[in-house]
Computed example of a mutant assay.
Amino acid sequence: MTTTFVPRRRRAQLNWLLTVLPAFPLVLLVLRLWYLSQQDLPTMLLLVQYISPLGMISALIITLIWTVPAVILVLRLLGGILLVSKPDDTGRSLLAVTALRMPDWVVLLAAMLAAFTWQLRLLPTLCMLIVAILGLTAAQRFRGVRPLMLWITLGVPILVGVLVLIFVWPGITAALRTGEISTAILLGVPPLLGPFLTGPVPASAARLFTHWPAVGAALIAPLLIGVVFLRAPVLPNSAVEVGPSGKEIEVVRGQLISVDDTSTTVLKTTGEVEFIPNDQVRSKTLCPEPVRPPESSVAVRGWPLSASVLSWIAPTRRVTEVDPRCLGRPLNPS
Rank of each mutant, 00 (worst) to 15 (best):
T316P: 09
T269M: 15
P288I: 07
E272G: 13
R253T: 08
S297A: 14
K268Y: 10
S238G: 12
S263T: 12
S258Y: 04
V319T: 09
E295M: 11
V300W: 00
K284Y: 07
T265V: 07
V252W: 15
L286N: 10
I313F: 01
R292K: 05
V259S: 08
V300Y: 00
P293K: 10
V281K: 13
N278S: 13
E241P: 03
P304E: 03
V240F: 02
I249A: 09
G243T: 05
W312R: 11
T316F: 05
S296L: 01
P288C: 13
N278W: 02
V300N: 04
I276R: 07
S308Y: 00
R282F: 10
V242M: 13
I276N: 04
V259G: 03
G271Y: 05
W312Q: 11
Q280W: 05
G254M: 07
P290M: 02
T316A: 04
P304V: 08
A299W: 06
S238H: 12
S311R: 12
A307C: 06
I276S: 09
A239H: 02
L305R: 00
L286S: 13
S308M: 04
L286H: 12
S306W: 13
I276V: 14
G302K: 03
S238A: 15
G271D: 12
L310S: 05
C287R: 10
S308D: 03
P244F: 03
Q280N: 04
V252N: 04
P304A: 02
T262V: 11
S238M: 11
P294I: 02
A299G: 03
I249G: 08
P304N: 04
T264D: 01
V252H: 12
V298R: 00
R318Q: 15
N237L: 11
G271T: 07
G271L: 08
F275S: 13
L310T: 01
P288E: 02
P244V: 06
T316D: 08
G254F: 07
L305Y: 02
N237I: 12
S296V: 01
L267W: 10
R282G: 03
V309S: 02
T316Y: 04
I313L: 12
I276Q: 15
P315I: 02
R301T: 11
P290K: 01
L305M: 09
E272Y: 12
V252A: 15
R301L: 01
E289A: 10
G271I: 08
I257R: 09
A239G: 01
R292F: 06
T285M: 10
Q280E: 14
S296W: 00
K247N: 12
K268I: 15
R301A: 10
P244C: 05
I313E: 00
L305Q: 00
V300S: 00
S238P: 12
